[in-house]
Nucleic acid binder design. Sequence first.
DNA 1: TGTTTTAATATGTATATACATAATCGTCAT
DNA 2: ATGACGATTATGTATATACATATTAAAACA
Lengths: 246, 246
Amino acid sequence: MSIVETADAEGTVSLHQRILSDISERIMSGAWAPGHRIPFEHELSTQYNCSRMTVNKALSQLAKAGLIERRRRSGSFVRRPQSQAAVLEIHDIRIEVEALGLPYRYERVARHKRRSSAEDRALLEQGVAGPVLALECGHFAGERPFAHEQRLINLTAVPEAADEEFVVIAPGPWLIGRVPWSEAEHRIRAVAADRHIAVALDIAAGAPCLVVERRTWSADHPVTHVRFTYAAESHTLVARFRPSQG
Amino acid sequence: MSIVETADAEGTVSLHQRILSDISERIMSGAWAPGHRIPFEHELSTQYNCSRMTVNKALSQLAKAGLIERRRRSGSFVRRPQSQAAVLEIHDIRIEVEALGLPYRYERVARHKRRSSAEDRALLEQGVAGPVLALECGHFAGERPFAHEQRLINLTAVPEAADEEFVVIAPGPWLIGRVPWSEAEHRIRAVAADRHIAVALDIAAGAPCLVVERRTWSADHPVTHVRFTYAAESHTLVARFRPSQG
DNA sequence: TGTTTTAATATGTATATACATAATCGTCAT
DNA sequence: ATGACGATTATGTATATACATATTAAAACA
């Protein structure tokens, strides 16, 4: 997402939006190089014939987006690109499959309720042992396996999950909207399919797979750990770029 | 990144920051569930004993962050988490290697200047044929290959690159800071190593690899296409979670 | 000359005010 | 009932103003 909002059909944008996009344009195009001092608020308010507050609103947003740095008494300066960040959109698998024009099918393979093992606790980053729900699910695109899901749900954080069989609804959509998440972490890597995954995805053992692991917290309590395994041919993650972001 | 700024040592935060974090806290904790109508601006301005403008500043930021949705005449409502977006930090490979405590070494394997082929144009999403620079580079962690880089640079967009040998400096760091980028796209997938990659990374042919491809534009002109290939064991991409983001 | 004090300046935050805009509600006529 | 229409209401944007705060430049002083 760009910090510049797209104008609507009539092209009516607010003044501070226009100031923001004008300046952002000049920075992006390189016309104002990193280190360059952009005009003072009072200069811009004269240029645009508006109040300083309006200019301030635009510049504050640019500063928050990391495009400029503001220093009292000195002015505002174009920042040099720092950490490059890309936004990964994490879609629902059903949506992904249907976007391919293929019929989606979900299947619960296994479901076990147990007291968390040391391994479970490591995956969940859970402090003390407690009840967990371990799920294994298949996601299909047409007849072909699309992704294999291995999930742990912390029943201390989400006790209602104990009453759910997850035969009809997949745990992902079930959790979303029910549990407010505050933080999560993704790990993405390539692995060779082990025997178990090879059978589940109907590929050769040792074939390359993309693994996306996600750990979710809600208010400092671990909620779930999920590992999606995709056969190499079936999946590419796409990330849009975000300039800036301080 | 949280939209709630961290307070400084004395705990002095501006009032609109406090309002923002109070509300954000209640949403994150689930106290205010999705669909809940949060108090009107005039109610909050009474509660906090401040002007409506101050409340508006906080709520506007929450809306932009995607935590709430604002509807005229109706009020502001907690949004249910929509598209989940994760921020991928794209680091410099040198930094990544050095973070592992290993000595970093860069090596230019090949460099060809040529008129762009149909394949080149497809990778760059370049309209018409023009001069391109094709580079192949190795990145090493200690003695082991860490990543293999295959890059195309559009010499129409970056003519100075034609004079650079890229023996000492890697093309990534060279381009960064020199070319202001405005947009990019990443594709991440797992592949089996072909003969060429297997030799370059010193792994078996067919072994799983993580491929990160990046295409960069600057002011609508394609600048570069790069493909990094990592041996499966050597690399995991980590993404932090961003709740919201409309 | 070197140090301290003071003034000037740009940004940061907050206020009261004004009017625009979109959506909803109630009323009234059909 | 149903539709038109005006009143109401919450948000959206912008203004002029005020004072706080950080930082730098200039002036005063030892």
